[in-house]
Design a protein around this nucleic acid. Structure first.
Lengths: 146, 146
DNA sequence: TGCCTCATGTCAGCATCCTGACATATACTG
DNA sequence: CAGTATATGTCAGGATGCTGACATGAGGCA
């Protein structure tokens, strides 16, 4: 494959370049998560729970950009593997608060380190200021379309 | 839903914010493409063909970040709707060069205008310089992970 | 109180995308 | 020339995610 084909106008399109970066990140993350027996949504679920414990399936779904149904399937898989706990019945309302088990925390620590490595590799050639700018601009873009 | 929940550390993660922006863009694009009877990969395919005509399914697949098989399915749908043409047999090698029909060009013009509108809305609150910076930084990130 | 709205969990069905495999056509290499 | 490697198209099967629908629980309001 040639390096950039014709270096066409696509590289001027914000949408295309954003998709390109996102696809590259996803691919790289799946690569490092595969040996850890974790898929992308599974890792996202564990990460979200580590940031704030006791979230419901619907909350996790919004945080991971999937539907409630998909997140529920993810939660079952992680529950069956003993990485998190869910009450069988809701103590209040219908939400079932989820928590990481020690095994889940341990697994996440390894995975998180690998993912951080990928992120650092992604922005390695940017200065600290540019990284902050990029972070801020991306957040602005996301907010503008919400 | 509260605005940003706890405004947690997730907003400091480059990967998360990138995914957030990408998801928002995809959602917004699907919203404007739905009335035009076009899905995301279908639009990407048409756009790629308008940039460079005669591309094979495999080339289009790489450009749209999907597999050859998925792109082949997309091409069939667009071919059945008369938006593009493919030779039944390869004139040389195995590649089947694809071209847009006038109907395909017309449909793409409308879709492209809608998508450009979405992209402009996304970066509306950024200065021209910041837009160029964002474009350049995203390309750098994508290249670093390839 | 009764009613309405909203959020959550869950089930069934469908659409989409991918992995694995195979045949074919071209280019390269000994 | 024969063998290998690479690229393309295609088929079959499975995995994943989504839409639509329903029941349940909480909160707000006349």
């Amino acid at each position: 494959m040639r390096q950039v084909e014709t270096l066409g106008e696509l590289d001027r399109s914000m949408g295309y370049v954003l998709k390109q970066a996102s696809a590259a990140l996803r691919s790289a993350m799946e690569e490092v998560l595969l040996p850890l027996q974790l898929t992308m949504p599974q890792y996202a679920c564990l990460e979200l729970l580590s940031r704030r414990s006791g979230q419901s399936s619907a909350e996790l779904a919004r945080g991971a950009f999937v539907t409630r149904q998909s997140m529920n399937q993810v939660l079952r898989g992680l529950h069956d593997r003993g990485l998190l706990t869910r009450p069988a019945v809701a103590a209040r309302g219908r939400a079932l608060p989820t928590q990481l088990t020690p095994e889940g925390v341990a697994r996440l620590q390894v995975a998180s380190a690998a993912v951080v490595g990928v992120e650092q590799r992604m922005v390695a050639s940017l200065t600290a200021d540019d990284q902050q700018r990029l972070l801020r601009h991306l957040a602005t873009c996301a907010h503008a379309l919400s």
